[in-house]
């Protein structure tokens, strides 16, 4: 009969030779094999200390951005919520009062902005939809939580630290994805 694949292996049913029946040489061989594994490289990455580098197009947690003066960019236009296929985003708009110019960049802002991280599929459509570059996906992923309500991220969770008050935390949160707002490749 013609073989279908070339992976056929004929099982040898020959009686064992004396050398094989001695058993100890075989054990010794096996032990040499395991011994050689002492010098092999371990593929494990010590996770919390070391992380695997993400690809440049990795989409993680959303961040609400501020401009250089620390003003919130979001105008609560709702385009991200419309674009969101998982309907994870809800927001409530409010009008900027006199004297709040240092807080919000434009006359309208989001008083409430929530993303349900259990619904979010991290597609990045919100980032594409945003006309103000106010939201983008960072390189971190959603941490675990004990309760479902802990996964509904409000403004205090999403908003980037103030670059004026806490420039280091801002830098850290900004990550590499925000450096080239026009260079994501999303626009083309």
């Amino acid at each position: 009969m013609q073989a279908l694949t070339n992976r056929l292996k004929v099982v040898s049913r020959k009686p064992m030779t004396f050398w094989e029946r001695m058993y100890l040489p075989a054990i010794l061989k096996g032990m040499i094999i395991t011994f050689s594994h002492i010098f092999k490289k371990r593929p494990t990455i010590n996770y919390p200390e070391k992380t695997r580098p993400f690809s440049p197009v990795f989409r993680g947690l959303q961040i609400l951005n501020r401009d250089e003066e620390g003003r919130e960019k979001c105008t609560a236009c709702g385009l991200c919520a419309v674009a969101c296929p998982a309907e994870a985003i809800t927001m409530e708009a409010a009008e900027r009062k006199v004297g709040e110019e240092h807080l919000y960049k434009e006359e309208k802002y989001a008083a409430k902005y929530e993303i349900n991280m259990l619904r979010c599929i991290f597609c990045g459509f919100c980032e594409e939809a945003c006309p103000k570059d106010a939201i983008y996906l960072s390189e971190t992923f959603a941490p675990s939580n004990f309760q479902r309500k802990g996964f509904i991220y409000g403004k205090e969770d999403l908003l980037i630290p103030d670059p004026k008050k806490d420039p280091e935390a801002y830098k850290k949160a900004l990550g590499s994805r925000a450096k080239h707002p026009e260079g994501h490749g999303n626009e083309h």
């Binding site: 395991t34 011994f35 594994h37 002492i38 490289k41 371990r42 593929p43 494990t44 010590n46």
Partner: peptide
């Protein structure tokens, strides 16, 4: 762990 290319308790 060492014989199996793992790290073991650390």
């Amino acid at each position: 762990a060492i014989l199996q290319d793992r790290r073991g308790p650390n």
